[in-house]
């Protein structure tokens, strides 16, 4: 495990959306640390709050409809309290973002070169000529052959994988210290996905930045992440280094998820199904273990009243105590 300086520290972050004058927290008390040279993966199913967490860090929420509380400490500044103008000095320069759908993240009416240059115009003092050279340099860096030609093209002329490479070029254009990648490969084919993930890893090794990778694909996590945080219903329920998490998952939710992957090596066995559904934001029980309704065969006494993260191994944290008593339905008595 690499230990190096802390880039971003999130403390007890709450992001709530207003529905009829009440705020409902989609991110509910998340604390995380991102270090230099690290890929931190945030995993969870749809609606668990992982994308909201990302957009809170980079300040993309409308202040009239959302409430961001807590601390997001970056370079001695609390990002959660910054105004729009101050934020523009952070966004793009220090924190770059890669979005899921490369086509809708690019402006269809602007040439690729101009779109990459845009960030450089706002954030750097480079001359026109230097900027153009930098654009070619970036396009080469993300593995686009013939950058001179591509820079003059429009997004619709490129394939999905190429567009995602352009998005990555834009994100790294000002050499950010933090890159937030929100499902960067979900819209891509597996062969392209492998290329993009390798590219991200190579870039990170080159620049030493920290990457927050948000995904629902455990395979992707296993391939690239250094540390993993599993989210459920707005909270982090398990956090561990990647080998530890995959070889020794503890929380019932993490274990259930692993058992429902149609794995490459399982031969037609029945997949595990998690009972019930992900609770909606409005009906979320705000007290007790949030996963307890979905593992109803585990006795009430196994759960904590107010679940907190416990360190079960070095750097391995699990929320609630129910993992000790948890067993899969149908294998009664077989304890973890």
């Amino acid at each position: 495990m690499k230990t190096s300086e802390e880039l971003l520290v999130i403390k007890d972050l709450h992001t709530g959306f207003r529905i009829k004058d009440t705020y409902f927290d989609a991110v509910d008390g998340v604390s995380l640390t991102l270090r230099k040279n690290e890929i931190l993966a945030i995993v969870g199913e749809s609606g668990c709050g992982k994308s909201t967490l990302a957009t809170s860090i980079i300040g993309l929420h409308d202040h009239n409809k959302t409430r961001v509380q807590g601390e997001i400490l970056f370079k001695n500044k609390n990002l959660a309290k910054l105004g729009e103008d101050e934020f523009n000095d952070v966004r793009g320069i220090d924190i770059g973002m890669i979005f899921q759908d490369p086509l809708s993240a690019l402006n269809p009416l602007m040439r690729i070169g101009e779109q990459i240059e845009e960030g450089l115009i706002y954030h750097t003092k480079l001359t026109k000529e230097q900027r153009v050279n930098r654009v070619f340099e970036l396009l080469t860096q993300v593995g686009i052959p013939n950058p001179q030609r591509v820079a003059r093209q429009f997004p619709h002329q490129l394939s999905g994988g190429m567009r995602q490479r352009v998005i990555i070029a834009i994100a790294i254009s000002c050499k950010p210290q933090i890159i937030i990648a929100d499902e960067p490969t979900t819209a891509l084919d597996v062969t392209i996905q492998a290329q993009i993930l390798d590219l991200l890893k190579d870039l990170q090794a080159e620049t030493g930045s920290g990457i927050i990778l948000i995904t629902h694909d455990l395979g992707v996590v296993a391939e690239v992440a250094d540390r993993v945080a599993v989210m459920y219903a707005g909270q982090i329920i398990e956090e561990a280094p990647v080998e530890e998490l995959f070889n020794n998952p503890k929380h019932p939710y993490t274990r259930s998820l692993f058992n429902s992957i149609p794995q490459m090596n399982s031969d037609g066995k029945k997949l595990n199904v998690i009972e019930g559904i992900v609770p909606s934001l409005l009906k979320l029980p705000r007290q007790g273990c949030r996963f307890s309704p979905r593992i109803s065969w585990i006795p009430e006494s196994a759960h904590e009243k107010d679940p907190v993260l416990h360190e079960v191994a070095p750097n391995h944290f699990v929320r609630c105590t129910c993992y000790k008593e948890f067993y899969f339905k149908g294998e009664e008595g077989g304890r973890a």
């Binding site: 597996v190 062969t191 996905q193 492998a194 993930l197 390798d198 694909d217 455990l218 395979g219 992707v220 296993a222 391939e223 690239v224 992440a225 990647v242 080998e243 995959f246 070889n247 692993f258 992957i261 794995q263 490459m264």
Partner: peptide, 20 residues
């Protein structure tokens, strides 16, 4: 195609990258 599929285990991922 097969080599591009992410494996659900972090063990040996460097080797898989070289294989790819």
């Amino acid at each position: 195609l097969l080599s591009a599929i992410p494996d659900v285990t972090p063990n040996g991922r460097e080797d898989r990258k070289l294989e790819r």
